[in-house]
């Protein structure tokens, strides 16, 4: 028997991203198991677009995704909070000035 190493092993997990309509971003919808990327596309089509939920699919091996650590949420994202001058509503422009 060849490839005994492969036998009984679970198909790897893929994360699935679907573009709902032309012009939109791909959005994470869930995961699934497949033995290869092409099968993952087929499975994603059957699992996540049975009701016309998509026009394009990305699949990524779950193990290839690096996620930020929740323990670092404060240090990663809090510093952006006080930089309110980045937002257009921070500035008061006189009514007389148009198209700005």
């Amino acid at each position: 028997m060849s490839n005994t190493m492969e036998e009984g092993r679970e198909w790897p997990l893929y994360e699935v991203f679907v573009r709902a309509r032309g012009g939109l971003d791909h959005k994470h919808v869930g995961s699934l198991h497949a033995s290869d990327a092409r099968m993952a596309i087929d499975h994603a089509r059957d699992l996540y677009t049975r009701r016309q939920e998509g026009v394009s699919i990305w699949v990524v091996p779950s193990k290839e995704i690096t996620a930020s650590d929740p323990a670092e949420t404060d240090s990663l994202f809090e510093p952006a909070r006080d930089k309110i001058y980045r937002h257009p509503t921070f500035y008061e422009i006189p009514d007389e000035v148009k198209t700005l």
Binding site: W11, L32, H33, A34, D42, H43, D46, L47, R50
Partner: peptide, 11 residues
């Protein structure tokens, strides 16, 4: 043979 194939064959 796998849950995902149930869906595939059904389609």
């Amino acid at each position: 043979p796998a849950l995902e194939e149930d869906l595939g064959l059904a389609n």
